[in-house]
Design a binder for these strands. Structure first.
Length: 1084
RNA sequence: GGGCUUGUAGCUCAGGUGGUUAGAGCGCUACACUGAUAAUGUAGAGGUCCGUGGUUCGAGUCCACGCAAGCCCA
């Protein structure tokens, strides 16, 4: 053992010392070794996947949370004897990177390829990707997350991309890839379509105030009859092609006035929307009631006529999605700008309203920048929503359209409307639903398999898997794989211009051959160089040759970044091109852990790819952590300025307390409200107490030169009862903690360790056994205490090591024997020894603790200090619950010293009140008579000798029921004169009569106490001897005769003298008497 | 509109399989201890366990319907 003190713990220094040690001794690599230490036995592997973070943003406090969980279980499994290989990875592609580069360069998407070449742009992206890699690595290092960062997998790595291509090809060959035009969420600000996962980023849906209009559509050939349709997106009105009603909803034709023009008109609307639209019944007159289905097929006049719109158009259709919750029950349909609209359009053969742009491409009436095309002459060039490109105009485009319609008498009602509208997760600008040509993965085709396989995954907590993830799978849409961006894994698909021939490339070798063919055909000038970069723009320049000899061009799109991360199990090994064995050994993962925000992100893409490819799961256990919110429960965001700097937190509070706090605060999956004050409490109360216990041990172990040796251990059953109890509790703790770890319930691990350290170890064992450590002689009694505390501390370091790797390493290093492994992270996780578990002893000790607590309460109530000895504690004589106190002297002695009483007495004259023990009865055969038992005992609460059981008459059965004592709760009342207190089924009384002997003893203890104070004040060492000078006083004289030995022993007064007058005396006020004393240190 | 989660002391949160006195920490009040001491302990006050019904001898716990908040999706 090395004797160290942690009294003033400097976390920063402790951490750097431990880090240095880990580095010097290569502990992390050694812990990952595939062989068990000291043997050739191959360890079983426990597979962990690290979800790749993107290093182009600064890490936040929530990353400590997620990474702590990963680290804790990996360390735990290592200690359980598994080989846990941990590879870091980085997500390098994608929109966040591109947007940051655009911001840095002050450009927009449309500038790429014009003011900056794609080549230079991607170069910038590559540089930006790892911008905060240092910060990430720093955080990872500081918090003690063990992961191999030296050779991380990078999603932009050439080999990584080759695997991604291979995966795409495999899916393509299975017929799961298709090209289609769909209405997609599209962000004009970012210049790209967004995937479902992107739209599912938290905070995308925002409550906004938009203009809503109820528009009058003139019914064809019906003068003055209008259809009222409501929309919150006026900018889509110029693309209107139909109006939808619900076939089963009743509609009305009413006579009313246009509120703006005061013109008399007749309008159609759903019956149930009438009250919402008109404040008074005088405002309208019902003319006709008609079912929705009878309106289908009616025609109406177009609202605008900017572009010719092919038939069929401008007619009423029906669909179930129409509701009357809001609006008029008649819904405006613009198939180019809404998913439902597009679906209805398809159903009725509506073409959609398109024009050709200057490149001859078919686009809707709004261009990709979000502006109206020229053809919409009244609003040409105006942004349909605020995408942040220009100064906000005086009025929104929606309002301009509304006013335009109002002027023409076509607006019935214009309002501001609050609703929730999706926004781009990166630019924060509104998205549009926009027709986009994309490549899709047919995830819907394998929906059932996905759900079925999901049941094999163990989710922690389970409801995330069953609920959130399960529901998501059941409502699955096809996965839009392609992005019209630049920095990403390119889509390996080449097509002929007529789109008739398609080639999907699955390896670089294949590409090389295709290029070779193309060179021979004359479409391509050069062979594929060996060191080619698969990124854009280089890959775009490769023209391949179709089987029919036509040139093929690459689809100029890149893959959704989520595909990259989902490909990680395969691509990190460059499977199937190399490392097949490694891949197979490491698939699927035994364990992954990420935040709940990954439900539809990484969790989904991992699951989707492995399910689609092989009908297998890719991870067996997943621990999902909640969000880290600020202390008020608000989301952390830079904009609100309520983010918490993770490095600063680690620096201030230490890595171990931070990890302990973040993982121990809430049940799994719950959001943590991060509160520095709470973290401080964890640091102070838990870690502080643990340090004190440790220091206490170290202090005396050093004085006594205690040295733990396995060969000299004192058998547990030969130690004191309280030692046996401590060891027994420890075994229970180890068993419970192991179970919690195995079930991925980290917060239970923490809570159990915490309550053991605070309640059992510190507040009971140490408090009661302090004297054993500082008493003079070295004997077995003392040795047993050292040994028990030692074993306890050593086991604690092991079971805490996965969570608090630094402090435990330091403590372990101080405690370990030379034959032990050098690091706590290399030792096997402790196993509970059941032969040391003594359930009875645990129970009895609880009884002792309870009695002491009651005794303290009683003393407090009567204002009698613990220092004043009392003659006796009484317990009911006949109750067997107190038997252990009389059978086991060690237990009663604990009570005697803790409560400072001379004896424990049995009091025979008590009255007993009996209640049923419902929990016990409910388990047994008497359950069905519960009502009768309850009724009887309520009217007959006192019974003679209830501890032997009682008979209860059951009137219905005309018989007596015998209730054994364990089915009863017995309350005891002491006879008058006793000062007693009861709790649950315990009752104790204290005798507060003070004899003169007791008073003298009490006085002597006070006196000793004051002398000890003086010793300390004069900086005497614990074992310094003194000469005690006392001024003569009748009180001291009367006490001295009986208490001399006690006083001299406690104060270590080898010499003493009574004097008439003292020089430089100290005045001690004890119980209304004043004595003067002086002490002098004796030279040894 | 749908899904999931949450609702327990002033605050932050625990409370397998239902059991009659619902816990912890912090905060507050009072006190004690004094060689673990820049530490520690004890006690007190503080609760309609969101509401309403139901199942049951018995519901914080199970069921149903609500209410509120958060997240996600239409």
């Amino acid at each position: 053992m090395k004797y160290i003190s942690l009294s003033e713990i400097d976390w920063k220094q402790l951490e750097s010392e431990v880090q240095e040690f880990w580095k010097k001794e290569d502990i992390f690599m050694r812990s990952q070794s595939s062989k068990s230490p000291g043997s050739d036995k191959e360890k079983e592997s426990f597979v962990f996947y690290e979800g790749p973070p993107s290093a182009n943003g600064i890490p936040g406090i929530h990353h400590i949370m997620g990474r702590s969980i990963k680290d804790a279980f990996c360390r735990y499994k290592t200690m359980q004897g598994y080989s846990v290989v941990r590879h870091a990875g980085w997500d390098t592609h994608g929109l966040p990177v591109e947007l940051q580069v655009e911001k840095d360069l002050g450009i927009q998407k449309s500038d790429i390829g014009k003011t900056i070449s794609v080549e230079d742009y991607n170069k910038k992206c590559r540089e930006a990707v790892m911008r905060f890699r240092k910060e990430w690595e720093n955080l990872t290092h500081q918090m003690g997350f063990w992961i191999n960062m030296e050779k991380p997998y990078l999603t932009c790595d050439k080999n990584y991309i080759e695997t991604v291509w291979w995966l795409v090809q495999t899916l393509y060959n299975k017929g799961l890839l298709y090209r289609g035009k769909t209405i997609q969420p599209y962000s004009p600000a970012a210049g790209t379509a967004l995937s479902q996962h992107e739209l599912n980023q938290p905070g995308c849906y925002k409550s906004v105030k938009d203009i809503s209009i109820i528009v009058q559509f003139q019914r064809k050939e019906k003068h003055n009859e209008y259809l009222l349709a409501w929309t919150t997106t006026p900018w889509t009105l110029s693309s209107n092609q139909a109006l939808a009603v619900h076939k089963d909803i009743p509609y009305l034709r009413v006579k009313t006035q246009n509120p703006y023009t005061q013109k008399d008109i007749q309008v159609y609307l759903a019956e149930s929307t009438l009250p919402g639209l008109f404040s008074s019944v005088q405002d309208y007159e019902i003319i006709e009631k008609i079912q929705g289905k009878d309106m289908v097929g009616w025609e109406y006049e177009p609202l605008f006529s900017y572009v010719p719109i092919p038939k069929p158009s401008f007619l009423i259709v029906e669909d179930d999605f129409v509701s009357t919750e809001e609006g008029t029950g008649i819904v405006h349909i613009a198939p180019t700008f809404g998913a439902d609209d597009a679906r209805i359009g398809k159903k009725y053969g509506l073409s959609g309203v398109y024009v050709k742009d200057d490149q001859g491409e078919q686009i809707p009436l709004v261009d990709k920048m979000g502006r109206f095309v020229e053809e919409v002459k009244d609003f040409a060039g105006r942004y349909v929503k605020d995408f942040g490109f220009s100064e906000p105009e005086k009025e929104s485009t929606d309002l301009s359209i509304a006013l335009h319609l109002k002027k023409q008498g076509k607006a019935f009602k214009i309002e501001k409307h609050n609703h929730s509208y999706p926004h781009c997760w990166r630019t924060d600008k509104p998205i549009l639903y926009y027709p986009v040509t994309s490549w899709f993965l047919k995830t819907t085709q394998l929906k059932k398999e996905l759900s079925q396989l999901n049941k094999e995954i163990h989710w922690h907590p389970p409801q995330v898997g069953k609920g959130r993830f399960g529901n998501w799978l059941e409502n699955l849409q096809d996965w839009n794989l392609s992005r019209t961006r630049f920095w990403g894994s390119p889509l390996p698909i080449w097509m002929t211009e007529d789109q008739q021939e398609i080639l999907c490339i699955g390896s670089y070798e294949e590409l090389k051959q295709e290029v070779h063919k193309s060179v021979q055909a004359g479409w391509q000038a050069q062979e594929l160089p060996h060191d080619f970069d698969p990124h854009r723009p280089y890959v775009d320049e490769l023209i391949l040759c179709s089987p029919k000899g036509k040139p093929m061009y690459r689809e100029q799109e890149v893959l959704d970044v989520w595909f990259d991360s989902g490909a990680m199990p395969y691509a990190q090994w460059h499977y199937p091109f190399e490392n097949s064995e490694s891949f197979e050994k490491n698939f699927p993962a035994d364990f992954i852990a990420e935040g709940i925000d990954q439900t539809r992100g990484w969790f989904f893409t991992l699951h989707a790819l492995s399910s689609l490819l092989w009908k297998k799961i890719s991870f067996k256990n997943v621990v999902v952590n909640g969000l880290v919110l600020d202390k008020k429960g608000n989301k952390m965001s830079k904009r609100w300025g309520n983010t918490v700097d993770p490095l600063e937190t680690l620096k201030t509070y230490g890595a171990d307390p931070t990890r302990w706090y973040l993982m121990g605060q809430v049940s799994p999956g719950e959001n943590v409200k991060f509160d520095a004050e709470q973290l401080h409490i964890v640091q102070r109360s838990f870690f502080g107490t643990l340090q004190h216990v440790f220091n206490f041990f170290m202090l005396y172990a050093e004085i006594d030169a205690f040295y733990y040796s396995r060969s000299q251990t004192l058998p547990v059953d030969e130690r004191e009862i309280i030692d046996q109890w401590l060891i027994s509790r420890l075994q229970r703790l180890i068993a419970e903690v192991t179970r919690a770890y195995e079930n991925y319930l980290i917060h239970q691990v923490i809570q159990q360790i915490q309550s053991f350290v605070l309640d059992d170890l510190s507040n009971w064992y140490i408090r009661l056994n302090r004297k054993r450590f500082w008493q003079g002689q070295k004997n077995e009694y003392k040795y047993a205490a050292y040994q028990s505390l030692y074993e306890c501390l050593k086991a604690l370091t092991a079971i805490m090591a996965p969570i608090a790797p630094f402090l435990t390493e330091k403590m372990y290093d101080a405690l370990r024997s030379p034959e032990d492994a050098p690091s706590v992270h290399l030792i096997p996780f402790p196993k509970a020894n059941n032969t040391w578990v003594q359930e009875d002893l645990n129970k009895n000790m609880r009884l002792v603790q309870k009695i002491c607590s009651l005794g303290h309460a009683l003393r407090k109530k009567h204002q009698i200090k613990v220092r004043q000895p009392l003659s006796a504690l009484s317990v009911p004589a006949s109750d067997p619950i107190y038997n252990p106190l009389f059978e086991n002297k060690a237990l009663s002695e604990l009570i005697l010293s803790e409560l400072n009483v001379k004896e424990i007495r049995r009091e025979p004259h008590v009255q007993q009140v009996v209640k049923p023990h419902f929990q016990q009865i409910g388990k047994g055969p008497h359950r069905k008579w519960m009502k009768d038992i309850k009724a009887y005992l309520e009217s007959h609460p006192s019974a003679p000798n209830p501890e032997k059981g009682i008979h209860i008459p059951i009137p219905k059965q005309k018989k007596n029921l015998f209730l054994p004592p364990e089915e009863l709760i017995i309350h005891t009342l002491f006879p008058p004169g006793h000062q007693h207190i009861s709790e649950a089924n315990l009752s104790v009384a204290l005798d507060f009569r003070l004899s003169s002997d007791l008073l003298k003893e009490g006085w002597a203890r006070e006196f000793v106490n004051r002398i000890q104070h003086l010793r300390k004040k004069q900086n005497l060492d614990v074992d310094d001897k003194i000469h005690l000078y006392i001024q003569e006083h009748p009180q001291i004289a009367s006490v001295w005769t009986s208490m001399e030995e006690y006083i001299r022993r406690e104060t270590q007064a080898l010499k003493y003298s009574f004097e008439k007058e003292l020089e430089n005396p100290f005045c001690l006020d004890i119980e209304k008497t004043r004595v003067s004393v002086r002490i002098e240190k004796l030279s040894p």
